[in-house]
Design a protein around this nucleic acid. Structure first.
Lengths: 354, 354
DNA sequence: CTGTTAGCGCATTCAT
DNA sequence: ATGAATGCGCTAACAG
């Protein structure tokens, strides 16, 4: 019923070994034979048996890309870019030659699912794994991740981090591309301070995430440098990276401190929710309250007023991670690269009212 | 170096077959033996060899989810929902039991890549495939897709369509969940007509996409019913489903017909671009020009003014597609279900100026 | 309920 | 440059 490599060999009047060599292309084969084999492949509509191939070769062409929330363009952009780089342009025939199968796995931000996906990819003998976005900081989970990544690396899987800080003590990782969340956060708050803001509230992300912590640390560093200390706890509310969270957090922050003149959000999506809350309270942006985000997602420039934020080169970082995973690019020195974050000043921030 | 099932069997003092049965759980095994085996698995830190397993069983636990553009939340939401339903809640141990590996594949809207991914999944002997979003209408590609899906189905892969109309003449498909794009498009334009609009421009999606065509047909049906005929060509501009396209299309439409009082966009993202163009031309929304979108993505309610649009239950549809792919839900009668689209009237549409 | 046996389809030695 | 033979690690009959 199903066509095998042996069928192709018979049809082309060569040995199975020759067909294998033609298909994998990593061995000299006479041009005429190759052509005969390829014609047989087309004639019989043969499709390689991936599992059999992977079993024999002890490696597969699967590449996993783990994301925290695929409904969030932050991850969609990175994952899509990585996949483009890995999948290659395709040969236009739909026949699928030596292509890797780059696949995206959505952990939903759950540490358990993250580990489960890694196990599943390990089971498939994945060629590479890319981990994107902030990591959960729980020590037990960190240890479990280190161990798992080490095992993957042992089995020949290349591990790349994208938008995630390097795991201390894990030489398993080929390369780590870390965003400068701390620096971006600091410059953003410095911008607000330079406008004259002093009472700045922060609608933060989930507590135990590296991304959350680093952005917040940058904010605090700027505040401290301006001599603004002591109100950190009161002017910070944590929540998920979604619109609703930004809305609720902002209402709570305004309740705690009605004199707030600026709200910094954990990311652009949260900033959208924050803006809605501010407007629903009858306040104007930026006249009454300034709002700032982080990431510079595509919709941010279209917010009204346009959102001041910190741009992360998500597409470029994802593409680079893809190349690193493919071994198409040499890793940065020490395996670690910090990716710059650029302040984007737009209409949502302005000097506070007198 | 690498632990095999035989090692586990030796360690647990049972036969390899018994270990296999414990791991797959689809065969009676004495509780005491099972426990012994599981302990051996943990002791040796054994991970099943997926390729070997798939080869022997002639089926894998891979499920593919194809999307046109993963950076677009329209797809991210559906894909994430499907993946949640397929991956299951996880057992919290990260050990990965009988889980399927649900993976997202980004075609970038390219027909070639769509076919390539299907071949790759076919090669992996995928358990199921979910195709999301509009299809390309080129006849050659349609034929190639039908043939490919038939082959997949032959090999035991379950095929589910989500947000994509059924492929005529393809019984390969387990179920097709189609959005009521036509009905939604019609009701949206009827809403504008009822407000008093007559000169309505349309910033459409890519020409050859089913989604584009159906939404446009709904629009035309409403216009025709109102006796507005003849200006279709002049008041329609096609482009990709992105912000930039909406911006450019709207400038062009305003150039062609300065008296336009409403712009309907192919989707919410395009509507964002359209809104920006309108504002850049010094016009107000909705006082000077009304704007409407499609999909009701999360950010649409936060646009200023909030975007009138057509809500598609993306999460629910994706989840249902996931269950269908898993065989956890019985397909709709005839394998086809139409998913209702709900008009969401918000601030971006109002009666035209006198 | 458990053990034995025989492939699954291919890549890769070795030969030639 | 090609062919023949071996085994990758597991599942699925079939016995018992």
């Amino acid at each position: 019923m199903t066509v095998t490599l042996a069928d192709v060999a018979a049809h082309a009047r060569v040995s199975p070994a020759t067909v294998s060599r033609v298909l994998n292309g990593n061995y000299p084969v006479a041009a005429s034979t190759r052509e005969r084999v390829l014609r047989a492949v087309d004639d019989l509509d043969y499709v390689l048996n991936g599992p059999a191939s992977s079993l024999a070769a002890a490696t597969s062409d699967l590449v996993g890309i783990l994301v925290n929330d695929i409904a969030d363009p932050f991850f969609g952009i990175m994952a899509g870019a990585a996949q483009t780089e890995i999948g290659g342009p395709g040969d236009g025939s739909g026949r699928a030659g030596g292509e890797k199968l780059a696949v995206i796995c959505n952990t939903g931000g759950s540490p358990e699912r993250e580990l489960t996906y890694l196990t599943l990819l390990q089971r498939q003998r994945a060629a590479a794994v890319i981990l994107t976005g902030g990591a959960v900081e729980d020590p037990a989970h960190r240890a479990a991740m280190s161990a798992k990544l080490a095992k993957l690396a042992d089995a020949g899987t290349r591990v790349v981090l994208c938008g995630r800080p390097p795991l201390p003590g894990s030489e398993a990782v080929v390369a780590a591309l870390a965003f400068d969340n701390r620096g971006g956060g600091r410059r953003l708050t410095e911008h607000l301070l330079s406008l004259g803001h002093r009472r700045i509230a922060y609608a933060a992300g989930p507590l135990e995430r590296t991304t959350t912590r680093h952005r917040l640390e940058g904010h605090h560093a700027a505040m401290r440098a301006a001599g603004l200390v002591g109100d950190e706890e009161r002017l910070t509310v944590h929540g998920p990276y979604d619109r609703r969270s930004g809305y609720d957090a902002t209402l709570e922050l305004l309740r705690r401190e009605p004199e707030v003149t600026a709200v910094v959000a954990a990311n652009d999506t949260v900033a959208l929710g924050a803006s809605a809350a501010i407007r629903d309270r009858g306040l104007r942006i930026p006249e009454d309250i300034s709002v700032a985000g982080f990431d510079d997602l595509p919709f941010s420039v279209d917010a009204v007023p346009a959102l001041t934020t910190v741009r992360l080169p998500l597409f470029e970082a994802g593409a680079r991670a893809g190349r690193l995973a493919m071994g198409k690019e040499t890793p940065p020195p020490g395996g670690i690269a910090t990716i710059a974050a650029e302040l984007m000043v737009r209409g949502s921030t302005a000097p506070p009212r007198k």
